[in-house]
Design a protein around this nucleic acid. Structure first.
Lengths: 231, 231
DNA sequence: CACGCCAATTTTGTATACAGAACGTCGATG
DNA sequence: CATCGACGTTCTGTATACAAAATTGGCGTG
């Protein structure tokens, strides 16, 4: 357990968790004095936390009128996925070349048995997402590229926020697990091209699934997935 | 001329320019009080500037002992290029699909006549790099993806710092211009695949050129390109 | 002579106070 | 009744003061 003693780090993590956990939904305005009193910290460390969140792209200064939580329109999710396509394909390629085969072989066996994880009714799918997180960690370690790793980290933060929109689809989850299995197999077999292509397939299907869900919720039109609003 | 009135922004831009301009070479330690007195600002806005530089990856906290300007080893440049491969290929693809053909056709004619720019002896190659910057801007506008654009912006900041290592090679500059020409032609012709491949070719050659220069300077060994030191 | 510990100083992290700017509101006037 | 302007409130941005932590130097001891 990494105990962060810096107050600004605690404020950052708290706000970040609240944003990705939808306790602070898109459009929420974050006044400095308001949040500093709420979190019990001074304005100085809070400003540092907000600066980091701005750098992450989780909040942005809406026309000078305070900071607001970035919205999650379908268009912005598409933008995230376009970057994700580029970075995750590259990560899959590099991991195939540099990764520890044994590590990915073990992950392969775990993904092969993922049905058991999905059967245990775990409302938040903690076991499954934990396995995916361990795959992400293994890829990060394999690529050994701090720039790529940090870029992927911020992307994943945004994707956790998106996840809320797509959780309730067990069929999609099982399909995603199968797609992950192919990616891990390719990396374990040091097949960079297959890993890259399998990653593209996975992201294509994930994006299509999000599009489908968005169309179901508020059909039709290019409207934002969630209405703006404060808690 | 965008006049930045915020003191923290001025401090950020000043430090950023000094870092990419090698006035603050890699390894320089940036004490808060030292820099705040030097720039004539208080510590609070300076800390915000340093936080942004940290987010950019230009400075990092070296084991708690103050902030230091990130070093530019050959390994770190390779990492930058691995991310660049992924993002610029994607940008080229998307620009080919979404770009304004007329804009890129005009840039195409300018790159075709780039020899004239390179003939005028401009020590800093301002005209040439200005043209490249306009190409970057056109691509940013074409891709219309804020996440991708901001990621490319930070990458380009690092690349300006790298540029110092590769300026003195007119033959390479002419070759790079020809490579850029092909990329622009492909985008103007809406040939996404060719644009992607031409981008890969360009980045491959640019990286090879940097490797060659690094080997010439301090052969052999995986040593950093520049020795660490303060000004 | 080397290793370790203690103290002094510098440095970072946090809090608060002050100033300036922007937004909203209330009132007055056309 | 609508619109424009001025005032007040509230916000961000900046500076400074305070506290805590870490490093460096020196001194003592093994």
């Amino acid at each position: 357990m990494t105990v962060t003693k810096r107050v600004s780090d605690r404020a950052y993590q708290t706000l970040r968790d609240e944003i990705v956990g939808w306790e602070l939904p898109p459009g929420s305005v974050l006044g400095e004095v308001e949040q500093s009193t709420r979190l019990g910290v001074s304005r100085t460390p809070l400003r540092e936390a907000l600066a980091r969140l701005t750098a992450d792209g989780l909040v942005s200064s809406q026309s000078g009128r305070g900071l607001v939580v970035t919205d999650l329109s379908l268009a912005s999710i598409r933008e995230i996925f376009e970057v994700r396509q580029a970075l995750e394909e590259q990560a899959a390629r590099l991991a195939s070349r540099r990764g520890d085969t044994a590590v990915f072989a073990k992950l392969e066996s775990e993904f092969a048995a993922v049905n058991e994880l999905l059967d245990h009714d775990d409302p938040a799918r903690h076991a499954y997402y934990g396995l995916v997180a361990r795959l992400d960690d293994a890829i990060d370690a394999a690529v050994d590229n701090s720039y790529l790793t940090s870029a992927l980290a911020t992307l994943r933060t945004h994707l956790v926020r998106v996840r809320r929109l797509a959780v309730d689809d067990p069929a999609r989850l099982a399909a995603a697990a199968a797609e992950h299995l192919l990616i891990v197999q390719a990396i374990a077999a040091r097949d960079a091209e297959l890993a890259a292509h399998a990653t593209q397939v996975h992201l294509h299907r994930a994006w299509r699934n999000i599009q489908k869900l968005a169309n179901l919720e508020n059909s039709p039109g290019p409207a934002p997935i969630v209405p703006r609003g404060s808690p």
